[in-house]
Simulated assay, not measured.
Amino acid sequence: MPEVNTGEWLTAVDAHPETCDEDLLVAAALVNDDPHVEGVDPAVVTTAVEELIELGFLEVVLVDGDEHLLELRMP
């Protein structure tokens, strides 16, 4: 699958009617390879990741124990 343009991806996440500000903050952190989102509760981060997967913006491509490798997708 071709690489996703991160700027276009973040714009799509922001424009989606079912995403919220926290989803966009988490998406931006993921693009920067940062699992910690300043000022956002870890439970909210988990929920946002699950929402982005459900909406088709992320896909789990590898699971190693508790670690998940995610790829950006355009729904």
Rank of each mutant, 00 (worst) to 15 (best):
A15M: 07
D33W: 04
V13I: 07
V60S: 06
L72N: 09
W9R: 09
P75H: 06
L72M: 13
T46Q: 12
L52Y: 03
V49Q: 13
D14I: 00
V61F: 06
T47M: 05
D23I: 00
P42L: 01
L52H: 03
T47C: 03
M74N: 11
P75R: 11
E3C: 01
L70I: 02
A29K: 08
M74D: 13
E71G: 03
D41G: 01
I53S: 07
A27K: 06
G7I: 00
E3P: 01
L30D: 15
E18A: 12
D33A: 12
T11K: 15
H16W: 07
A15F: 00
A27E: 11
A29L: 05
V13C: 06
L62C: 02
D21N: 07
D34C: 08
P17Y: 07
V45T: 12
H16A: 10
A12D: 13
D14T: 08
E59T: 10
V61D: 14
I53R: 14
C20W: 04
L30R: 12
V45W: 02
E54T: 07
A28C: 05
N5F: 02
D64F: 00
R73H: 10
V60Q: 09
L69F: 03
E3V: 00
V31K: 15
T11Q: 15
E38D: 15
E22W: 05
E71C: 05
L25S: 13
V44K: 09
R73G: 04
D66T: 09
